[in-house]
């Protein structure tokens, strides 16, 4: 009898131990699926859920905060995902948080990521629909990649044709094998090198000149650098402009006068006309000129007589000495 009860106790411990482990396992799995504890529901909508299914994790900033409860159709182009979120995240997820579908690692299970947006918004409450971001469509990516591959293939084909043409071009290979061209190019490069050396020297000299012009004390630097001189030059140019203007005005007046004189001459009026056109005046003038010539000759003779006179000889010698000095 005693044996029986001991065996039964052992059996009880054995069964309870197994049940404890089973219940613990189920509880942990249930807790993991947010079956126990305080939760609330948030929703989001996608055009394509990419294989997301009930039980997939919801992740916020890398922390698992819930699971997908269900995925169902709203209409022909829109799916609604119902998410069970731990109530601890109630004061964290805002109404403007972005939801997108990702994968756990490269080849892992699908999961829903909730991304916080910096803009301010109230906290999401039960049954709120969070905005979603279109997931990266791998099919579209593959299509684009395929298109790119085709284009690359075509380019490679064209490139191959071009290379073949280049390979089969006798002229090109002749050109490439001709050593004289290489020598010429080499010589040309030497000449270019020398020229560049000389250009460099010239540039240095120009630089020196520029330095002198900038910092030197000569006339040209002053002309360039002296502000007073520049002002004076400006004033001189202005004066020159004024003078030119005045000369132009005077020229105009002279022209006017000449025109008047010409008119008077042509009209037979005034003294000029008398001088130029009246023959009697001309004869008188000729006679006067003859008299002046005769008078001046006489005056010259008198002066020679004076030079040789003892009274004035001394004066003329002193005048000659002064002129020589």
């Amino acid at each position: 009898m005693k044996n029986n009860s001991t065996d039964n106790i052992k059996l009880g411990v054995f069964v309870l131990g197994a049940l404890f482990f089973l219940i613990l396992l189920l509880y942990m799995i249930g807790k993991n699926s947010n079956m126990f504890g305080d939760n609330y529901i948030l929703k989001t909508r996608f055009e394509n859920v990419q294989g997301l299914k009930a039980g997939n994790n919801i992740r916020y900033a890398g922390i698992d905060i819930g699971t997908v409860k269900s995925v169902y159709f709203i209409n022909d182009t829109m799916m609604e995902v119902k998410m069970v979120i731990d109530k601890k995240a109630k004061n964290i997820i805002k109404k403007n948080a972005l939801v997108y579908i990702g994968t756990d690692g490269l080849v892992g299970n699908k999961l829903v990521n909730i991304l916080a947006v910096k803009a301010d918004a109230p906290y999401a409450v039960e049954n709120d629909i969070l905005p979603s971001k279109k997931p990266v469509d791998t099919d579209e990516m593959m299509r684009t990649l395929s298109k790119t591959n085709n284009q690359v293939s075509k380019i490679a084909e064209d490139f191959s044709i071009t290379i073949n043409k280049l390979n089969n071009s006798k002229g090109l290979w002749q050109l490439l094998n001709d050593h004289t061209i290489a020598d010429n190019i080499s010589n040309a490069s030497i000449q270019v090198n020398k020229s560049s050396y000389k250009i460099n020297e010239i540039a240095n000299k120009i630089n020196d000149i520029a330095d002198v012009l900038k910092n030197g004390n000569g006339t040209l630097p002053k002309l360039i650098n002296d502000k007073n001189l520049a002002d004076s030059l400006t004033a001189a140019i202005n004066n020159f402009k004024t003078a030119a203007y005045e000369i132009t005005e005077a020229g105009k007046e002279i022209n006017h006068s000449v025109a008047l004189i010409s008119k008077e001459v042509n009209d037979g009026k005034g003294s000029i006309h008398a001088i130029l056109k009246d023959t009697s005046v001309t004869i008188l003038l000729e006679k006067s000129m003859e008299n002046i010539e005769t008078g001046s000759k006489g005056f010259s003779d008198n002066m020679d007589a004076l030079k040789h006179s003892f009274l004035f000889r001394g004066y003329f010698r002193r005048l000659e000495k002064r002129n020589k000095q």
Binding site: N4, D7, N8, K10, L11, F14, V15
Partner: peptide
């Protein structure tokens, strides 16, 4: 019942 528990002990517990 008694035989059942006895068998449970022999079959279950003793096999652990």
């Amino acid at each position: 019942i008694k035989e059942f528990f006895k068998q449970c002990y022999v079959i279950g517990y003793k096999s652990l």
